[in-house]
Amino acid sequence: MHEQAQLRLKKDEVQKLGAEVFVVLAMDHYRTRVFKEENLVLSTFKNPFTGEPSLVFGTALSDPAGSASALYGVSRKYVRGEAWVENDPCWFVIDRKGTLTCAYPPNFSGANFYEKDIDHVLEELRKAAEE
């Protein structure tokens, strides 16, 4: 969710590049809609996005059986703690010709890495937009 929140701060830049953004969740479309429309995670503790009603500006997609996730190699389906983890989060950049130009798993190793992740992804998106 932090990744989406950070990307939303760069929404204008993404739109200038003429890019389209998708967020894929390996879950049914009800939960995908909640993910898109409600700030359920970051509203629960103090952070720069606590008061925001929604954090996702891209198109949210439901991948209920995890087929697309498996195609892109991010499916995992294991138990972490008490919960099931369907996917490993990962960014993919695709250029104007339809070629996959970047696969980038977010770092998640520190509070500031979300910004660095998005900066990196946007740099790759700029290159893809020039192709």
Partner: peptide, 20 residues
């Protein structure tokens, strides 16, 4: 279907988990 937009514009896809 992704192919409806593939090859037309740059695309950014994030495979997410609910809290990440």
């Amino acid at each position: 279907k992704l192919s409806t937009v593939l090859g037309r514009k740059p695309i950014l896809i994030y495979f997410a988990v609910f809290d990440g």
